[in-house]
Design a protein around this nucleic acid. Structure first.
Lengths: 194, 194, 194, 194
DNA sequence: CATGAATGAGAGTTCATTCAT
DNA sequence: GATGAATGAACTCTCATTCAT
């Protein structure tokens, strides 16, 4: 695939992203993508052969976008508390972000995959979050910033709670205050009591 | 609608239930239902005009089934702790129950509803859970069984965590031990410290 | 399938027959059949799910048509020579019949099947012809009507020659006289010399 | 067309040959050829504008290949019997050769051409065979090697039989012994009786 | 000459929905 | 009420063919 086609592929991924944000995963058709990209039916098939392959490419592109942002916001020698705070800040954004979020599409996609006994992307993402938090909590506790007994258990608890809120905000109505309050509650259970 | 018709309608609802359990919501077609019920295409339309109306009926029937079970299991004078324990027991079942659950269908349906700015069934269900827990926590704290400051906040936290686990078990792999550990963690944060 | 649909199915088979006669097998599309039958796209799929299944049904219907005709033309006590003559007469018709013949479609279909290592319909038909001829030649030789050493070998030879002529008439130009001459040549090699 | 172009054209013809051998004629697409040749889509169109034109070129190239082989195998002063034997040997190879044969493609192509009232290549080939055999039989009979009355009729009969066997071997299962037996039977009907 | 991206026509297939019986 | 045949819109996917580079 030439240079030019890589550009086109990225263009399709970008346009498709909007479609998945708007319609979720299951109800998106090749026709939807074709129309969003304003290309020919056959043209799309030069790059992707199913909505699923497009969606995977969209997620990949998305994950490439996310990481750099996180790092830049941190000071040179961040405390574990700093890192956790930033993590919560990002999560809060993900929870409340209604427009532009691929979350619903990702849930729908994961439901399908899970039926087929495959390891879902969502699952990988959550595992990564648990590992990340576990590590922070451990280091933070050792440094006296936090006071957590079972790091893994608490990490899981936090991830479940965050995921629950994400789900809530897509099926119910969740406001920023509620999210803030929950994050404070979590912080309280982590910080040393005295 | 005659007596016979009501029977038929219930028969359809029961059969459709299995279909939604198996296939979620979005991918279920009128044809699926027709085949599951072994009735005529036109026949189904006498009772329901879309998969959505069938699904709503299925959920309604489901909610009618659930409640009585809960009450019966409680002793005459249950403590708030008893009630909470029973609630957790039921939730645990809902989290781990892979076959026979309408959860995925309900998520898919709620995503669609929420897009249309409608109040989702899931939302109502979660609100009810929060209220229920809030009430128990309040009474329990007053009775000295629990020690919770902000009843509403903690109730929400519990609901989010539970919902997060439900989601996890449909997109990832969650075992009973993990659930138990989480429930223990929640109980610890509720029970009086000393 | 109700009474009415059997009629419709037969109607489709009849119309499809013309299509296969005209276009062979490979280039016939579901659309061709739909248009020949003047029914809806979806309508056809109620009865058949591929051109192949239609073609098989056409062949089946065709073979049901053929047999009765043969029997009726024979006298009460036909000699083996009578039977053979009738057989040749039918074969001559099949060779020369340009309009209305499914032969080309059958060849095309058989080529495909044979690629897939399946026993082809054509193959079965030819086997049946060989067996039939072998039997006639044997009885005829015993009755002194014919003088054939190796019945099976001669039966095969006749079948190959006939098939060769059929093929010729679809790829080249074969006139009735040529066919007659060949049949006379075959008869000469069968009849007793003296 | 330059020297280089002719080389490329021959390269395409050679690769296309394999494709036609494998898939027959009708189901071969320009895409198949492009992929087999590993050239660009547009590139193919510089040399050929349809699968039909490619196939014709393939057949032409094929016929150029065949003849020299035949001649070389003959002794200086071959008898007519020698020539006929060699002819039968080549035919036997053509009948039994399953891989590498263009026969099915040629049949499919000829069916199409014949529909359009064109003189088919197959037809020309068979005419040539008849003429060739007629000549041999005539000369052989004159030389006392054979004993054939109507040379043309017998030549046709042989060609039909051979063609019938070729067809059989592509739609049914034909073994070498059967072919040998048929050839012996033919020889018997040609050789002088005494 | 050669490339390969792009097009659009057209085939296959499925489904919600209607309607005569 | 109940049936199930029939419709036609919508979707997926593939190919021959063109054309800017």
């Amino acid at each position: 695939m030439g240079n030019k086609s890589i550009q086109k592929k990225n263009y399709i991924i970008e346009k498709a992203n909007h479609v998945f944000v708007k319609k979720g995963f299951r109800s998106v058709t090749m026709k939807d993508i074709v129309e969003a990209c304003d290309i020919s039916r056959g043209g799309l098939y030069l790059y992707f052969d199913s909505t699923e392959s497009i969606f995977r490419a969209v997620l990949e592109a998305e994950s490439a976008k996310v990481d750099p942002g996180l790092a830049r916001k941190l000071s040179d020698k961040p405390t574990n508390n700093d890192i956790l705070t930033l993590f919560f800040y990002e999560q809060k954004k993900a929870i409340l972000e209604r427009r532009g979020s691929l979350l619903v599409a990702m849930y729908e996609y994961s439901f399908e995959q899970h039926e087929n006994k495959e390891k879902t992307l969502l699952s990988n993402q959550m595992d990564a979050s648990v590992k990340f938090l576990e590590d922070i909590l451990k280091k933070g506790t050792e440094a006296g910033e936090f006071s957590v007994d079972d790091h893994r258990l608490m990490a899981q608890n936090i991830v479940y709670t965050l995921e629950g809120m994400k789900l809530m905000s897509r099926t119910s109505f969740l406001n920023e205050e509620d999210v803030n309050n929950q994050l404070v509650l979590i912080m309280k259970s982590i910080l040393p009591k005295n």
